[in-house]
Simulated scan of single mutants.
Amino acid sequence: MSSSDTSQAIINITNLRLRTFIGFNQEEKEKQQDVVINAEIHYPASKLCLSDSVDDAL
């Protein structure tokens, strides 16, 4: 199958905000901070749509 035959799927994650303890300094360890995640994931979807197998999952 050539790359032109493969459907691409995109997952966009925008401004996912997590509040957690992160850091090395004592103040950072005691006070929660926001972690903001932005990601864009591209993957071939055609194989995934044809199967219910975990091995084919993202």
Rank of each mutant, 00 (worst) to 15 (best):
M1I: 09
S2M: 01
S2H: 07
S2R: 06
S3K: 05
S4E: 14
S4Q: 12
D5L: 14
S7Y: 03
S7Q: 11
I11K: 04
I11C: 11
I11P: 01
N12F: 06
N12Q: 12
I13N: 06
I13F: 12
I13E: 03
T14W: 00
T14F: 03
T14N: 09
T14Y: 04
T14P: 00
N15H: 03
N15A: 04
L16H: 05
L16Q: 04
L16S: 00
R17C: 01
R17H: 00
L18Q: 13
L18G: 07
L18M: 14
L18C: 09
T20Y: 00
T20Q: 08
F21I: 15
F21H: 15
F21R: 13
I22D: 00
I22Q: 10
G23F: 05
G23W: 03
G23Y: 06
F24A: 09
N25K: 13
N25Y: 08
E27T: 10
E27V: 11
E27N: 12
E28Y: 08
K29Q: 15
K29I: 09
K29V: 06
E30Y: 10
E30I: 10
Q32F: 00
Q33M: 06
D34E: 11
D34I: 05
V36P: 01
V36D: 02
V36W: 02
V36N: 06
I37C: 02
N38T: 10
A39F: 05
A39W: 03
A39I: 06
A39D: 04
A39C: 11
E40Y: 00
E40I: 07
I41N: 04
I41P: 01
I41E: 04
I41V: 15
H42R: 13
H42I: 08
Y43R: 01
Y43I: 04
Y43N: 01
Y43A: 12
Y43H: 09
P44C: 07
P44Q: 11
P44L: 04
A45V: 05
A45Q: 04
S46I: 04
K47W: 02
L48G: 08
C49H: 11
S51K: 13
S51R: 13
S51C: 10
D52Y: 07
V54L: 08
V54I: 11
D55I: 12
D55Q: 13
D56C: 05
D56F: 03
D56H: 12
D56A: 08
A57E: 05
A57S: 10
A57K: 00
L58S: 08
